[in-house]
Structures are given as structure tokens and as C-alpha cells.
Amino acid sequence: GIPATNLSRVAGLEKQLAIELKVKQGAENMIQTYSNGSTKDRKLLLTAQQMLQDSKTKIDIIRMQLRRALQ
């Protein structure tokens, strides 16, 4: 079985993952909103794209940590 310490770690990672998935969803929504907007929305679009990139990276890292914890 999986050690108890790993189980609480997994629960924490799953919570983090859920949050990051919401951030990713929000960033994707912002990108959709701003991509057909005016030029003043360009900065917001770039910010949203950066957020999305960061979020995807975090999600990958969390998933990797989850896999390790579940081994």
C-alpha cells in the first residue's frame, strides 16, 4: 500500500491541482475575451497568455509529484 504520509501529500497535491486547473480555465477564458478586443486589450491578452503558460507548467509539475507520491 501507500504510506499515510504520502496519502496526505496526495490530498494536498490534488487540492493544488484543482486550483491550478481553475486558474488555467480562467486564463483561457481571458484569452478568448481579449483576443478579439482592441489594442488596449493587448497587454491583458499577453498577461493572460503568460498566466496560462505558468499554469500549464505548474499542472505538469503537480502531476509529476502526484505520480511519484503514488508509486
Rank of each mutant, 00 (worst) to 15 (best):
T57V: 10
V10F: 03
E28H: 04
D41H: 05
D60R: 14
R63A: 04
S55D: 00
N6M: 08
S35I: 13
G26Q: 15
G37I: 04
I62K: 00
I2L: 09
A69C: 07
T5H: 14
T5Y: 09
K24C: 13
L66S: 00
S8K: 09
I31Y: 02
T57S: 08
Q32D: 08
G37H: 04
Q32A: 13
S8I: 09
Q50E: 06
N36P: 04
M30G: 01
I61N: 09
Q16H: 03
L70F: 05
N36C: 15
Q53A: 12
E20L: 13
I31Q: 01
A18R: 09
N36D: 08
L44W: 04
R67G: 04
I31H: 01
E28D: 02
L13D: 00
I62P: 00
R63E: 06
G1L: 08
S55I: 07
A18C: 14
Q65D: 04
T47I: 14
A27I: 15
T5K: 09
E20T: 05
I62T: 01
I2N: 11
R67P: 01
M51S: 04
A27L: 14
L7S: 08
N29T: 10
Q25G: 02
M64E: 12
K22V: 06
M64Q: 11
M51N: 03
D54H: 06
L52D: 01
Q25E: 12
R42E: 15
Q25T: 07
K40L: 09
E20S: 03
P3C: 15
K40V: 10
L13H: 01
R42Y: 14
A48I: 04
N6E: 11
E28C: 09
M51C: 06
K43L: 12
E14M: 15
K15M: 10
K24G: 01
G1D: 10
L45Y: 04
V23Y: 08
Q32P: 01
I19S: 07
T33S: 12
I62W: 01
I2F: 11
L21S: 02
A4C: 15
I61Q: 09
R63I: 12
N36L: 05
E20R: 02
M51T: 06
V10P: 01
Q25C: 10
A11Q: 10
L7C: 15
L21C: 13
M51R: 05
S35N: 11
P3S: 06
Y34H: 05
T33Q: 15
K22C: 14
L45W: 05
L7H: 14
L52C: 04
T57N: 10
Q65W: 07
T5P: 13
T39N: 07
L17N: 00
T5V: 10
I62E: 00
K58C: 06
L46D: 05
A69E: 08
G12S: 14
M64V: 06
E20Y: 14
I19M: 12
E14N: 09
Q49Y: 15
A11P: 04
L13E: 00
T47L: 14
I31K: 01
V23R: 15
I2Q: 11
R9N: 07
L70C: 10
T47D: 10
K43W: 07
G12I: 15
I2R: 08
Q32H: 10
K24W: 06
M30E: 03
Q50H: 05
Q50I: 08
I61K: 09
S35K: 08
Q53R: 13
R63S: 05
L70Q: 07
M51G: 01
K56N: 11
A69F: 06
G1C: 15
L17W: 02
A11S: 06
Q50Y: 04
R68H: 10
T47N: 12
K58R: 13
L17T: 00
M30N: 03
S35P: 02
L66E: 00
P3R: 04
E14C: 15
A4I: 13
N36G: 06
A11M: 07
M51F: 04
T47R: 14
G12F: 15
R42W: 14
G37C: 13
L45T: 01
I62L: 12
Q25N: 05
K58L: 04
L44T: 03
L52F: 04
R42H: 13
L17D: 00
R9M: 11
S35G: 06
L46A: 11
I59P: 00
Q50P: 00
Y34W: 04
D60K: 15
S8F: 04
G26H: 15
M51E: 05
K58G: 01
M64T: 13
L17A: 00
T39D: 11
T57G: 05
L44H: 05
V10N: 02
I59K: 00
D60N: 13
Q25D: 05
P3N: 12
R9I: 14
N36I: 06
R63M: 13
Y34M: 07
L52R: 02
A18E: 08
E28P: 00
Q49E: 05
G12D: 14
K15S: 05
L70H: 04
S8P: 06
L70E: 04
A48L: 12
I31W: 02
A48E: 01
K43H: 12
V23L: 09
L45I: 03
L21D: 01
